[in-house]
Amino acid sequence: MIKTEHLTKRYRSLTAVDDVSFQVGPGEVLGFLGPNGAGKTTTMRMLAGFVPPTSGRASICGHDIETDPLGAKASLGYLPEGAPGYGEMTVRRFLEFIADLRRLEGARRKARLDHVIQHLQLASVLEQSIETLSKGFRRRVGLAQAIVHDPPVLILDEPTDGLDPNQKHEVRTLINDMARDKIIVISTHILEEVDAVCTRAIIIARGRIVADDTPLQLAGKSRYHNAVSLQLEQPELLAATRAAVAALPAVAEVEVSERDARLTALPRSGATILPAVSELAARQGLKLKELHLESGRLDEVFRTITN
């Protein structure tokens, strides 16, 4: 269990994190979202025990981060922003160093090292020094050191930043595999990631929590929730179709994209417009390439509440 109460961090004139309270329980994957500079990294650094809070409290599995920092750190795996490491060390020596600090011994030490090396596919670079690795490998080494001691709580600051799509997929699969019995907090500004791995999302802006919900519920707050998007086969009918759709009683607004001959009809709040729009298309004999119902756009919600 991660618990924060009124967590606040001030730097001279700047309040980086302002009265943040939340709880995360086992099985939850919490996505920490926010624009750059919103306070995500500072919050994670406080949880990881790297910067002390100005006021408020936080605990990891019952260990208060200020009164029992070693207990809190021992229950935690942490990937700092940018996945720093010791450049001159080989991957193997580095992971062994962390395993030693994490008090892993004997057969368990070997088993855990083998496990992370296999799961993060590090076997091919084990004897290479960290400074010679690509960004993707470096990030994976960072993840490996965070999970080598199999901690109940994982805090990962931008775990997929700088990875290519295949590597992103691998890391997300890894996070999903671990999600069942762990508490995971990841920070990101990639919204697709929230859909891919998170069971809950907290959006933070200017140091404050502005939304805390499941990704589905958050998307439901979008103007595009239950909107209907249709793509025409005949672009010349765009203007006429637009007028017809806009005339439907439950439609609040119509957006047009000329590039791909697409119309998006936004419903009045709470209304359902899919039947009406598809009936209209059938009546007018429109040829459609595509017709679908949108569940809501997370990026639009994100922009609305963080601006």
Binding site: R45, A48, G49, F50, L70, K73, A74, L76, Y78, P80, E81, G82, P84, G85, Y86, G87, I98, L101, R102, R103, Q145
Partner: peptide, 14 residues
């Protein structure tokens, strides 16, 4: 400079 201090001091060491 390299940020490894954050890694070191978030291990269970004083």
């Amino acid at each position: 400079k390299s940020g490894s201090i954050e890694l070191l001091l978030t291990q269970p060491v004083t």
